[in-house]
Design a protein around this nucleic acid. Structure first.
Lengths: 138, 138
DNA sequence: ATCCCATATTGGATAGCGTCTAAGCCGAGT
DNA sequence: ACTCGGCTTAGACGCTATCCAATATGGGAT
């Protein structure tokens, strides 16, 4: 399971109990957790861990490119451990569930220079919205 | 200029000084303002207007479909008066500024059935991120 | 023109989420 | 084992949005 931990060690990331626990929580989950949910799961393994450390660690993992931040609304940000494989998101407007999806095509190429307004464009996110089978039935 | 005001009146929206001022602020601007920025501009025309009213009014305009809410990060939501024409967004990672863009291509068609997981997909948002000329220089 | 009341507005309180700070702790190199 | 820079902590703080009870007001009815 510890591809993530191995990669972090390999980059010279200083390993501490708190950081290991946070990384393990992300590595084991396949849903997109909020910072507080990560904290709640981390506390099970390491009761003294503080919220600040979870926030710091998540921020570092994001900077390192190992984890993605997903902001879909004004509720809490969610953290996506699946950063090694490019993907986009499909979100249910009813229940808020998120699935990873892999569209074909390259949206970055679809933005002509004339539409870039001098920006250095580095990244593109595609968010599909709709209703999941369960919410569509209700 | 007052297409927006006309449409609102036509829908039987009760017109008050505060609502008119908020609508005028949005109608006159071509950038995407935060609620506080809308409030700041509204105060110039109507010094007594309260934050709560601006929030209420923006919420109603969103419900009416006259204005779009754009949530890009954990900073303030921004309000997009350009709801009548489909477009996507280019966001500066430095200062949060937003520009409307019109990419070629159709991302909805890029999501194969096998990646839809039974969802009824109704909408797609494309968000380009980068640095605006000003933030790139700093 | 005036009255009336459903609805809008107000400002202050409250809540959610995230960031900051000061102080102590710890791990790795010597 | 010692030292020092980086890590962790608890709680204060800040920002944005929402809620609330009291007050004011638009606009139809008279």
């Amino acid at each position: 399971m510890s591809d993530l931990l191995e990669r972090l060690r390999g980059r010279g990331w200083r390993m501490t109990a708190q950081r290991r626990v946070v990384a393990e929580v992300l590595d084991g989950e396949h849903v997109h957790l909020t910072a507080d949910e990560v904290h709640a799961r981390a506390v099970v393994k390491l009761p003294e861990i503080s919220r600040a450390t979870v926030y710091n660690t998540l921020g570092e993992l994001v900077s390192l490119g190992e984890v993605l931040e997903v902001t879909t609304d004004k509720r809490a940000k969610r953290y996506d451990p699946n950063a090694h494989r490019p993907h986009h998101h499909l979100i249910c407007a009813g229940c808020g569930a998120i699935r990873d999806v892999h569209p074909s095509g390259n949206p970055l190429a679809d933005l002509p220079d004339s539409e870039r307004f001098g920006f250095t464009v580095s990244n593109v996110e595609v968010t599909y919205r709709g209703l999941c089978p369960h919410c569509a039935a209700a």
